[in-house]
């Protein structure tokens, strides 16, 4: 049996971990392989929680939407992946790459019973940073109207090269995030990868 840190008993250790999440205003959190089912479960329990909190429906919809778009980004683009073992069944028309697990972290919280936030993180290749940074930066400072126009333009013209979705996920979040959004990258030492975090706020 592995000793817990500082010789805490396991309940105390768990309690301290949970208290740390509380201190960071986390209401709901997940780290591990991101799947559609995880997303739906997180999303539906969050909806119920927000309903019980009597959050207004606009905030509730925005938070849910940000969770969906960001979690699906993890499913599509996380560079932390696990392929099925060789010999594992792969559905017809799909490759092992298609069914690989993609890992990430989702933190949903509420600052001092005020603004909600959705923060999603995943590992990305350093080579992907410039384009991602340019994409998201281009949305900063735009108002809702400008973002809506941009979204329609992109829906009409089709997704940009390399995009696995409609290419409008970030625009959707930026439009809904009434309290703004921020993002950053943290280089993972000794690798050609970085940790990427995007956090959207809802007033």
């Amino acid at each position: 049996m592995r000793p817990t840190p500082f010789h805490l008993n396991i309940a105390e250790d768990a309690y301290r971990f949970r208290t740390e999440l509380d201190r960071r205003d986390i209401v709901s959190s997940y780290t591990g392989p991101m799947t559609d089912d995880i997303l739906s479960s997180l999303g539906n329990s969050l909806r119920t929680k927000m309903e019980f909190d009597e959050a207004d429906s606009k905030t509730s919809r925005g938070v849910f939407s940000a969770l969906v778009e960001q979690a699906q980004n993890i499913m599509r683009y996380s560079a932390e992946t696990q392929a099925p073992p060789s010999g594992h069944d792969v559905p017809e028309g799909q490759t092992p790459e298609d069914i690989s697990l993609r890992f990430g972290m989702v933190l949903i919280g509420r600052v001092d019973l005020g603004a909600w936030f959705v923060s999603c993180s995943n590992v990305i290749d350093n080579s992907a940073i410039p384009r991602l940074r340019a994409n998201i930066s281009s949305l900063q400072g735009l108002d809702r109207k400008e973002l809506s126009a941009m979204m329609k333009e992109q829906l009409r013209d089709g997704p940009p090269e390399g995009s696995k979705g409609a290419g409008v996920g970030w625009i959707t979040i930026a439009r809904d995030a009434s309290g703004g959004f921020e993002f950053d990258f943290f280089p993972i030492l000794g690798t050609d990868k970085s940790y990427f975090t995007f956090k959207a706020y809802f007033k």
Partner: peptide, 16 residues
């Protein structure tokens, strides 16, 4: 009642 951005693309194509 809710659709994601990838679905928005499907709807856009359909409208066209």
């Amino acid at each position: 009642v809710y659709f994601n951005s990838s679905t928005a693309k499907v709807i856009m194509d359909l409208m066209e």
